[in-house]
Amino acid sequence: MTNATSALRTSVTIDELVASAQELSLAGRWPRALRLLDSAVPDDPADRARLARAAAEVALESDWFTGSDIAGPRLETAAELLPEGDWDLGFAQLRHTYGRLLVVDGALRLGPEGKDPEVLAGLRRQARDLRDGAPDEVRGGWTSMYLGLITDNLFADLAAAPAHYTAALAAGESGPDPLLAREALRHLGMHDHDGGNHERALERWRRATALGAGAGLVAGTLSQQLLLAVVARATGDEAGARALATEVARWAGAVGAGRLHTQASGFLDGTDPTAAPPVREEPVGQHVGGEAGGQPGV
């Protein structure tokens, strides 16, 4: 693999290049990660396809946290280079479709209202097929995670979703994949919080925060800290809640996580970021139910 942006030719393995871009993405350096991937010009078509897929995955993260809209073209490019049926591309496409279905008329809308039932059913079938055909336990766990998100946030079947998150947690812990375990704990804690079990939610959310930080997930760790502020407010510690949310807002603004900055600022104004948004009134990015894919997702 050579770097074509300089007269000085350097060599790096494809594994190291992709891993470096992924770590930059976790750190919230999405433009830098994309520039790194775009700067490489491998001779092997399989390597070019792998880099295109990695770039699409970085673009998905950027879209979620910053509100950019760059993943679509990246996914199309990857699809042209990868063999039909590539599992990882299929999962990235699933994530992209899920994110787009959260929005109706430019606003976040949870549940099935205003959405084509056949499209929703097709997405759930796709998730089940990916889970059943996953090449390993961890990737199967990620599709279980998305089955939970689809069930929760697109079908509004709140009773059925936790079983998918529990399966994802088991895969993340036995894999091990700390980001998958973090994501599952985040959403299981959301159901605890909604059910009034703040002690259990706090336990899960504290663990999720530590797992995200340990994996280098900058914006996701900040969003997790905002959930800790939610628990503080719910249990009567308003001063602690405001102190934590103030720092989350400050840090989110500094790293360019615009959606999270809006959420934290709304929390300081009295908005519960875990509440379902009012229909057609709340702009995208006001719900912090969780991320998925390490990664964004309500």
Rank of each mutant, 00 (worst) to 15 (best):
L154A: 04
L75C: 10
A252Y: 03
A264E: 09
L222I: 11
W64H: 15
P178W: 07
E281H: 06
L154K: 08
V218S: 02
G99E: 12
R50D: 12
E238D: 14
A229K: 07
L81S: 11
G172S: 06
D152Q: 12
G67T: 02
D15A: 14
R233H: 11
T143D: 10
L37W: 11
E238A: 15
L222G: 06
T77K: 10
S6R: 13
E80Q: 14
G214E: 03
A163C: 02
D272G: 07
E76A: 14
A234W: 00
L108H: 08
A46G: 11
R9A: 14
L268P: 12
A254T: 10
R50C: 08
P273K: 01
D47G: 03
F65C: 02
A134D: 10
L89R: 05
A171E: 10
L228G: 08
E247K: 12
T271W: 03
A213Q: 12
R53K: 11
V18W: 03
L123H: 04
V18D: 00
L228W: 09
H193D: 02
S223G: 10
R9K: 12
A121T: 14
A79H: 03
V41F: 00
E113R: 14
A239D: 14
V230Y: 01
R139T: 15
L169H: 12
A210G: 04
N3Y: 11
K115Y: 07
G90L: 00
E57P: 06
G133S: 15
G196P: 04
G106C: 06
E23F: 05
Q93Y: 00
G175Y: 10
K115R: 15
Y146C: 04
T274V: 09
D129N: 12
G293E: 11
G240W: 02
T10F: 13
L26R: 15
F267M: 02
A46N: 07
D43C: 02
G216D: 00
A49K: 05
E80L: 14
L51M: 01
V138E: 07
N3A: 11
A107K: 11
G189L: 05
L17C: 07
L268G: 08
E84V: 15
P278R: 12
A160D: 15
A181K: 06
E281Y: 01
L185K: 04
A249Y: 01
L36I: 08
L101P: 00
G106Q: 10
L268I: 05
A213R: 14
N153G: 00
L226P: 13
V119G: 01
L226R: 09
R32H: 08
L244A: 07
V12Q: 13
T221H: 02
P176I: 13
R95Q: 14
T151S: 10
N3S: 13
E282V: 03
Y146E: 11
A213C: 00
A249E: 15
